[in-house]
Design a protein around this nucleic acid. Structure first.
Length: 342
DNA sequence: AACTTACCCAACCGCCGCACG
DNA sequence: GCGTGCGGCGGTTGGGTAAGT
């Protein structure tokens, strides 16, 4: 037997909210809070709306300090990086972008960012393929002009010519590994402010973006890692730090790659230089195709701000430990996070 | 000007996990 | 331990609008 509907579908209004409805909902919540029961709320204030609809309206539109549109380059970077690391966990991503809602980010990703990234990468990939083709043609011509004894096809003599480092075919490496490797490379650059994802090191730390929101992701998003959570205070402010001991190894971080994530991964892997060009804005570093760093990494050139805050895999790892340590779980949308009645 | 297509985004749907009795 | 209700979340839809033909 299916679950009973949360409201009487026949008697609830659907579609866009009117200004009057908005005003009613806003006024009530600002005066009384949600009362911890969204389902009962519309009846209390005389709205013919589903409780879930009220919740969504409040969270995505009416609550204070919501920002719509106008995503900055930095926000783009954060979204992309988080997406690569944790996938479509929009609520977690939203938690790192104060004032943004998961719905907004999801829409922005689906309508603009994804295309922007894919468009750029495909364009560059095509250019690269063209370059590759030219190279092969030159090799072929060279072979014809200077035949190597015993060499019957062009492929067999490539190694002798020490060609430029070309991307490996996708069958040679798990795409998930490629992202991990990328992150390792990024982490291995010398700047201590750089990305601190450390798959071979038993812990990494996470602090919320800009320290503006100490938010623990919902339990449903979390993988069972061996992690701890602690409150850190500098005397004036308190922040939550996650410490992660990834007992199963770094693969956990990359579980669930699919669709565009996999495609991004493939792009990274098959076209390291191009994707890294794209990531330069993210990490403020240049990494050569062979994995070496150009040494251009610098805080100044990075648009990330505190790059330490971007050890995203750890975002999703601290929740259980927090629970164990009885640090109260704060929902991303817990009203106390954004609204405190006077 | 009329029509079609593409795009954007608010809102809905349905599943999942947690809390509670 | 089990069933139920609710909140939370991600995927999807559909209406409005802009751009293109």
């Amino acid at each position: 037997m299916g679950r009973a509907p949360c409201c009487d579908k026949a008697n609830v209004k659907k579609g866009p909210w009117s200004p009057e409805e908005d005003a009613k909902l806003k006024a009530y919540i600002e005066a009384n809070g949600t009362g911890g029961n969204w389902i009962a709320l519309p009846q209390k204030i005389g709205l013919k709306r589903c409780g879930k609809s009220c919740r969504l309206r409040w969270l995505n539109y009416l609550r204070p300090n919501i920002r719509h549109g106008g995503f900055s380059e930095e926000e783009d970077n954060i979204i992309c990086s988080l997406y690569i690391n944790i996938g479509s966990r929009w609520s977690i991503i939203a938690a790192q972008l104060p004032g943004r809602t998961d719905n907004d980010i999801k829409n922005y990703w689906n309508t603009k960012l994804k295309k922007k990234l894919l468009g750029k990468q495909r364009k560059e990939q095509q250019a690269r393929r063209a370059t590759c083709l030219t190279f092969k043609q030159e090799m072929k011509r060279e072979t014809e002009n200077y035949p190597v004894p015993g060499m019957v096809n062009q492929a067999s003599h490539w190694p002798l010519l020490s060609p430029p480092v070309m991307p490996l075919p996708s069958t040679h490496q798990d795409p998930q590994d490629s992202i991990r490797n990328l992150l390792v490379e990024l982490q291995s650059t010398t700047n201590p402010m750089n990305f601190r994802y450390a798959p071979d090191v038993p812990f990494a730390q996470y602090q919320p973006y800009e320290n503006s929101m100490n938010i623990i992701p919902s339990a449903s998003s979390l993988s069972p890692l061996n992690s701890t959570c602690s409150q850190v205070t500098d005397g004036t402010t308190t922040s939550t730090q996650f410490t992660v001991n990834d007992v199963d190894g770094p693969n956990d971080v990359f579980q669930g790659l699919d669709g565009f994530q996999a495609e991004l991964s493939e792009l990274i892997y098959s076209n390291n230089q191009q994707i890294l060009d794209g990531f330069e804005g993210f990490y403020g570093t240049g990494i050569m195709v062979d994995g070496s760093s150009t040494g251009t990494s610098s805080v100044e050139s990075s648009s990330w701000g505190d790059i330490n805050s971007l050890a995203y895999p750890q975002i999703v790892s601290g929740f259980e430990a927090c629970q164990q340590q009885r640090i109260p779980q704060v929902s991303i949308y817990d009203e106390s996070s954004y609204f405190r009645p006077q």
